[in-house]
Design a protein around this nucleic acid. Sequence first.
DNA 1: CATGAATGAGGCTTCATTCAT
DNA 2: AATGAATGAAGCCTCATTCAT
Lengths: 187, 187, 187, 187
Amino acid sequence: MEMADQADRRQALISAAFAAIANEGFEGLRLRPIAAAAGIDHSTLHHYFRTKEDLIAAVLEHVTSQLEGSMRNDLEPAGRLRHHLGAIATAIAERPELFIVLDELDLRARRDVTMAANIKHDEQGWRAALVALFDEGIEQGTWSVDLDVHASVELVIATLKGLRLRPDTAEVVVKQLCDLYSRGASE
Amino acid sequence: MEMADQADRRQALISAAFAAIANEGFEGLRLRPIAAAAGIDHSTLHHYFRTKEDLIAAVLEHVTSQLEGSMRNDLEPAGRLRHHLGAIATAIAERPELFIVLDELDLRARRDVTMAANIKHDEQGWRAALVALFDEGIEQGTWSVDLDVHASVELVIATLKGLRLRPDTAEVVVKQLCDLYSRGASE
Amino acid sequence: MEMADQADRRQALISAAFAAIANEGFEGLRLRPIAAAAGIDHSTLHHYFRTKEDLIAAVLEHVTSQLEGSMRNDLEPAGRLRHHLGAIATAIAERPELFIVLDELDLRARRDVTMAANIKHDEQGWRAALVALFDEGIEQGTWSVDLDVHASVELVIATLKGLRLRPDTAEVVVKQLCDLYSRGASE
Amino acid sequence: MEMADQADRRQALISAAFAAIANEGFEGLRLRPIAAAAGIDHSTLHHYFRTKEDLIAAVLEHVTSQLEGSMRNDLEPAGRLRHHLGAIATAIAERPELFIVLDELDLRARRDVTMAANIKHDEQGWRAALVALFDEGIEQGTWSVDLDVHASVELVIATLKGLRLRPDTAEVVVKQLCDLYSRGASE
DNA sequence: CATGAATGAGGCTTCATTCAT
DNA sequence: AATGAATGAAGCCTCATTCAT
């Protein structure tokens, strides 16, 4: 039981840090309030996370673990794309903070090599799945062989990243993007 | 002449702040180094910008003034879209700092109403131009009347925003987006 | 057997503390690393030494026990002096840490009455032996009756203390001091 | 006039730090009390000394400037030695704090290269003067050509260093050392 | 306009120690 | 005896801002 308490406390700290970043931004991340939110002394926080950086890394881990991709391999390419984009649009709409924080992290990654590495790693998996999706679609005739897979993948990623700050438009934008690819497909 | 000096100094401060944000991020924005970069005492900076926020606002103004849109009204809709997106892709590729800083500013806007207002105002103009572009295209038969103008506008904006952190992919992504709309058009 | 373990552990803590003072100085004495070096939790250290001061006192005891003087009473005064100084010079050269730590302790004694008392006690024995040596030497005609015994004792002590920070010069300095007293003796 | 104030304040900080080291030792050197003693906020201290190390360096400079050697070149070697040692003995007796602090600094030099360099530099001058003194003495027949100059210099230095912690014995010890060299000389 | 000393609030981190287990 | 979570005090340092000059 105590073990659960420990983990809980740790999780509480991560959650508090996550919320702080979401609400106040990276600038506003102060250790004292985080500790207070978890109901402990600010020096005790260092018992769980030796340094501020360690806490931030844990936040990143927490965020990415929540976004673990759901790519349904049982659908054909077009449907899979539609489903995947829809899932992300839904996630953006329902839990925008997740993406806000990811954006802050993304920005910080420009100066923090560790963070950059972690984010890159996470994106790699996503990117690979998208490449496979488009490759398969071309193979099956869903899209023309002329389709630029790399460009398409980057377009999808860029669009989704660009939606982070405007969660309210996520749904329509994603639909529009799907439609464009469907039209290409019907051709 | 001194007036020119004044303006120069002011501009030097803004440039220094801009560079600092581009290189170190918002977190790394310290007034003292900014003043030093402009060759003045850190106290004197407050004669030009009463507060840190004021300086940041000036940086935003500086950034947006550099991005004033070039929407060529002499071209037909499809060409105009292609040209516009190409121009932005070029800008991203050539002066990525501009967009990096814009991203930092965008993120900060979530907590700074003044900044949010300024950014929104700037985007409004952009948005309106895009709406006009698509409306005209539909009117002229470039795109189907079924085209969701609002969604398309947001898609374009989201995509471009999403490119900020990956300036190297800007060109191909923009081309891909144009192609998708061209194909839709050919229909 | 466990008792031996206990003593061993205690000794390990003292040794680790000794090494820490020798290497990092008094400033650098931290309990956690000491405990870690002895392979126990930092909390457990408090079972062996209730407080940091207690541990330091034990270090002093450890150091002085290692320096228990070897004054050979079988030699005549001049030879005894030469032998004694030589022994200390050798000790300084071979185990300089012992003297470094003693110096740190000496300095600290200025503010720590307990330490001051302990050190004073240790020195008292040394001082008495030296007084006896010189007294005997005068009695036997080795040195003139004009020899200031007290001053000579303090000179010897001061010189040896002054050598602590320059272990490499210990040998020649000690030899020089002996020579000065031998010359006085030959008179 | 204000300039004097500035320098005064700076000096006040150095003096306060000096006193703190003398009374509490290096361990007890805290910036806040130092600032308070000088009548300023603890953050203002950083305006005068960017870092704690800088302040310590200033203390060292202050101490050594007070000890600038008084080697009277108008006296013959034996008299010069007697005079020099007497001067230092007097200094130790009258201002023992100076030497206490020097001892703390000396000890710290073992871990602080900058301090070690500064101290070494100061000692170099002293050492050179002593070497010259003994060389001249041998040349003039004051001492035998067999005298080990290097050893004698180190003996003098070690003795004086060893006196730091026992200022009350300085006078007699120094006299005894002089006597030993005089006797050697008379020979 | 320019300076630089001064401020006060606040930042992260470290440490010896205690307490419940 | 041993652990490790928790504490609270304290450490150095930084920053935006103000004020007297």
